[in-house]
Design a protein around this nucleic acid. Structure first.
Lengths: 166, 166
DNA sequence: TACAACCTTGCCGTTTACGTAAACGTTATG
DNA sequence: CATAACGTTTACGTAAACGGCAAGGTTGTA
């Protein structure tokens, strides 16, 4: 009996090592994330194999980026993405809603959550930019001293040899 | 006998808990960073108390920012800041150099290292910005669906309920 | 000089984020 | 239908980044 389960839209579902390769994680990490409630595979095979759809893959990619690029802890990521139970509820809520008002509400919720995510990412970006600005300040300071030296001028009061990076 | 050791420029040296409060770290963390070779206090008191100067404080602030704001591991921070032995060497090299060419070389080295730091921070910023852009893409996608719904139009093919954040 | 308030070096404990192996079930293929 | 190649759960192991003692020495002040 084949495992070739298909999603409603016809896309293939991936087994854990397939998604792992796809998104650049290990199967162990993915299972761990599930244990933490960060994501649940869209389905399980007859024999209990985890099966992931495109949406899961996207979520895993996002998790990885939040971890590697943004440097968030898994706990923070959990808060950012909300818990998996709510995700499943909202997913079903949208999929099965016959009432347009219901579907609208689900989308509106998703919008608010994304706005929160963007705000948090923007704040982090701001702090990073501040650090860069500071580092460039130190750079200018040193370059200035260097210029003074090259111009034969004596440094007035070299209070330090140049700040953090010596 | 007082501990009031003074730096060449007359500034007071701080004891570990004083710097800890100053930069927002714990004494334990600071000792751990020393153990990892991230920084060594400028001096020790007669009775072996750690004594930090303004330069150390600045370095600790930078370490903290790299950890909290940029999300680097202590190992990465170590690579970014180079090892403490080199720091001490270069510090002494600059302080004691009578020859301007020597001093120039020390400053030039510092400049190169800061440039590296800035480049690494910039790269991180780039990845963060990419994430933000992606999140905003998702946001637009959802907003569009929402607009369609509100306009009474039927969604053409709601392949998902909205991406990562549901 | 007595003493509280700090500091020192061990050293063991804890949380996070997985790695790794055991023992066993599942799936695709010849 | 045999079997290799994958998957499952369970559980113990580990590196990173500290927290928190204990046992003792140091410092500023009364």
């Amino acid at each position: 009996m084949s495992i070739e389960v298909e999603t409603p839209t016809g896309a293939r579902l991936l087994k854990i090592n397939e998604v792992a390769t796809e998104v650049g994680l290990t199967a162990r990490s993915i299972r761990y994330y599930e244990e933490l409630g960060l994501l649940k595979p869209a389905a399980r095979s007859e024999g209990a194999y985890r099966l992931y759809d495109a949406d899961d893959v996207e979520r895993l990619r996002f998790i990885r980026a939040l971890r590697d690029d943004a440097g968030f802890s898994l706990a923070e990521i959990g808060r950012l993405l909300e818990d998996e139970a709510a995700r499943a509820r909202n997913r079903e809520r949208f999929r099965t809603a016959t009432d347009p008002a219901e579907r609208r509400a689900a989308l509106a919720d998703a919008l608010v959550r994304i706005d929160d995510q963007v705000a948090i990412l923007r704040e982090k970006e701001g702090r990073l930019r501040a650090m860069i600005a500071e580092a460039e300040g130190r750079r200018r300071h040193i370059a200035e001293h260097l210029a003074d030296l090259d111009a034969g001028r004596e440094p007035r009061h070299v209070h330090e040899s140049g700040g953090v990076a010596r």
